[in-house]
């Protein structure tokens, strides 16, 4: 799994961090998403998929 972000679209909802805190974080100043791990291990994949599905700004893209 490879993750890319379109961070310009991020609305700082923080849902990805709540769902997959090992993979996503937010910048302190404005809450914009930060990718901690662009190729997370298998045990994170389900959470990452959920984060991508739930993101209200469609920021997270997963490549197989």
């Amino acid at each position: 799994m490879k993750i890319t972000l379109d961070a310009d679209k991020c609305c700082a909802a923080g849902q990805c961090v709540l769902i997959a805190p090992e993979v996503f974080d937010q910048r302190d100043e404005d809450g914009i998403v930060v990718l901690l791990d662009d190729a997370p291990p298998a045990e994170q994949h389900e959470a990452v998929r959920e984060a991508a599905a739930i993101c209200p700004a469609a920021v997270i893209e997963i490549h197989a």
């Binding site: 700082a12 923080g14 961090v17 709540l18 937010q26 910048r27 302190d28 809450g31």
Partner: peptide, 10 residues
């Protein structure tokens, strides 16, 4: 509020 605090509010 800073993001960390906002998330904690949930």
């Amino acid at each position: 509020l800073p993001p960390r605090q906002v998330r904690a509010l949930r």
